[in-house]
Design a protein around this nucleic acid. Sequence first.
DNA 1: TGTTTATATGAATAATTGTTCATATGTTTA
DNA 2: TAAACATATGAACAATTATTCATATAAACA
Lengths: 121, 121
Amino acid sequence: MHIDDKHADCCDENVVHDDLIHLVADDMPEEEELYDLAELFKVFGDTTRIKILYTLFKSEMCVCDIAEVLGMSQSAISHQLRVLKQAKLVRNKRDGKQIIYSLDDVHISKIISMGLEHVKE
Amino acid sequence: MHIDDKHADCCDENVVHDDLIHLVADDMPEEEELYDLAELFKVFGDTTRIKILYTLFKSEMCVCDIAEVLGMSQSAISHQLRVLKQAKLVRNKRDGKQIIYSLDDVHISKIISMGLEHVKE
DNA sequence: TGTTTATATGAATAATTGTTCATATGTTTA
DNA sequence: TAAACATATGAACAATTATTCATATAAACA
């Protein structure tokens, strides 16, 4: 009763629960890995960025055209492209005055289409 | 030159770009669907919620035990479980005094493991 | 029935974030 | 070289959000 009694007033007398708690807690992935994972999904968690990714599925495109497709300011798009690039979801190359953006990850479309399946239910 | 000249000073003379813009813009999914998709990913975009989902992969569990596994307050966990439930990612059932939470979607583990693949690269 | 236990929830606060505006950087063209 | 164009970026502001604290709800038990 006194051994393994970590928490004071909640689920207290249940030894089975305590076993389960340690079992699950010990198997939790690294803090940093979970943080990175959450950061990745955070990037998908914005309509503008989702639209940009959708756009780049179709074709690589310069910043100005992406802004035109989405009907948003060049600055707003540029800021979001930076976020996407930091997450290694897009890459860019220069073509004269323009910077051409394209998708930089094979998992993206799978992740998104899987999310869509869930949403559509 | 005057026809199809939607934007004033950017990518202006390039008719090919204008074609591309309309092609891509017309194929964009419904605003509401994209919004829902972003909302779904937003739910994954928090370390606490990711940890809760990871925990529930292992086993269904009462609120108090989840709080214990994560070393967080019961209130914080309860708030987050509500978010997860609204997103239909978890469900609950009553068992006496306790409420037992479990995963409520087959896509979740696929989505998360795919995200992990990307992060690990 | 009254007390204890487990969970939920509203309000408040601190932190994060998306867009706008102004401007800087870097390339092309006249 | 100067002007025009495409993109990037810092600061500011508004909006959203995760946690805490206090308290409400609801079941179990004495």
